[in-house]
Design a protein around this nucleic acid. Structure first.
Lengths: 228, 228
DNA sequence: CGACCATTTGATATGGATCAAGCGATGTGG
DNA sequence: CCACATCGCTTGATCCATATCAAATGGTCG
């Protein structure tokens, strides 16, 4: 079996990879990546793609977590988004990636060629709608980020926790897949401010921090109020 | 002539408004709004649509300028974007507007029913691509905003000026269509900080402020350096 | 145990917010 | 035509939230 995937990562899984299979009509389009994509594995901090590389593929997270990030010339780093299992990343406006993508921990993804999807826009309305939905959803999340970034540290953290809680399945308990520095770079704060704000919220009984990556939401209304 | 446009604004222009005309195939899709849309006029600060209203239409600015904004419960206001002639606004992830839209000054727009476009996704590949492009472009601009918002006041202002310069046609001179307060709410700063930062930039000879809405970029490299 | 990394905590500095006043242009009514 | 109100913008003084610098604590893995 030869798979011409010139991407980083370890090829694995039962990849029935036929990227150019144009006759295939996905019924449940959610399973698209599983059906037509190759599986890849990444280790902690391993790069999936780099800023400026051609945006040839779309990716769906199967397990683990991915962050996209961008380094500014002075060393600051901005995190574009965190992607959890089921999320699709790699969508770009232009022909190349404006952020790089890295795995937070051992992560598996499915890849499909972008061209394999976009070429179906004509003739496959479901595919066109699917791509549009992926993009509008991403847009919505990015707009929500903008709203977060103009607020105070408390509000950013509260908003972040609520967002993560909504995305994880457990109701009032979150296991953060990322370190404090990642949270800080996501919210445009320093690691110290993130830490201090979390302890403040703990002191005000809004949350609980058993070990530091696990967070229990004790008082959602209070957090939601901060989220305005 | 009866046009059933339950939107605010003054109907005018040569509106050959046939929203449900499904047989129409736009060749130059850019002219789409002119061909199938109704023209509307708005005065300064007049609302085009409000936050929470059903997102039934897409709009293209023909003249003037539109801002989208959102009021937070504590009175702060965040501006989502400024739209100049040629820009399309009103795109939403969900079924209702998450921002409201207002005219900055006397402004004319063209409206088309969103459903009239989305219904064509199947069968009209050009339309599908067009909608996707509108959305990815909007996404790109929103991601650029996120990058601006984590920076210092000087960097935000510099980035904003460069963005406006790129969008306006005159190379090194911009006529801002919005007041300082709008700039402040766009960049997540106060009006005082915007003003002070502009005078700082003037003192460092990066820009010139003949009357306050007109800005001359004297030293683009310096601004670009701030923009990192 | 000891090295290493992530996180927290403390002390201080600072950029931008806030509060307040002044300035300049535009418009209105006497 | 001028006095005066209004609005948008700038400037000044002070305060505070967050950054910065520094050190302590805790957790994990060899």
């Amino acid at each position: 079996m030869t798979i011409h995937v010139n991407v980083r990562g370890t090829v694995g899984g039962n990849s029935r990879a036929r990227f150019a299979a144009t006759e295939f009509k996905p019924k449940p389009i959610a399973g698209l990546f599983d059906m037509m994509g190759a599986a890849l594995s990444f280790g902690r901090n391993q790069e999936v793609y780099g800023e400026g590389e051609p945006a040839e593929y779309l990716y769906m997270v199967k397990s683990g977590c991915i962050r996209t990030s961008k380094s500014l010339n002075d060393g600051r780093r901005q995190i574009g988004a965190f992607y959890l299992p089921g999320d699709v990343f790699g969508l770009e406006a232009g022909e190349e990636h404006s952020f790089s993508a890295e795995a937070l921990s051992a992560t598996t993804v499915r890849v499909v060629r972008r061209a394999a999807l976009t070429s179906r826009i004509s003739g496959d309305a479901a595919m066109a709608s699917y791509l549009l939905k992926l993009t509008t959803d991403e847009l919505q999340r990015t707009q929500d980020r903008v709203l977060l970034l103009i607020k105070s540290a408390q509000e950013r953290i509260a908003g972040f926790l609520l967002e993560m809680a909504k995305r994880s399945h457990a109701v009032n308990e979150i296991e953060l897949p990322m370190c404090r520095q990642d949270v800080a770079d996501y919210l445009g704060l320093t690691i110290e401010t993130v830490s201090r704000t979390l302890t403040q919220l703990e002191n005000s009984c809004a949350i609980e921090l058993p070990p530091s990556r696990r967070i229990v939401l004790r008082n959602r209304p209070a957090l939601a109020r901060l989220n305005s």
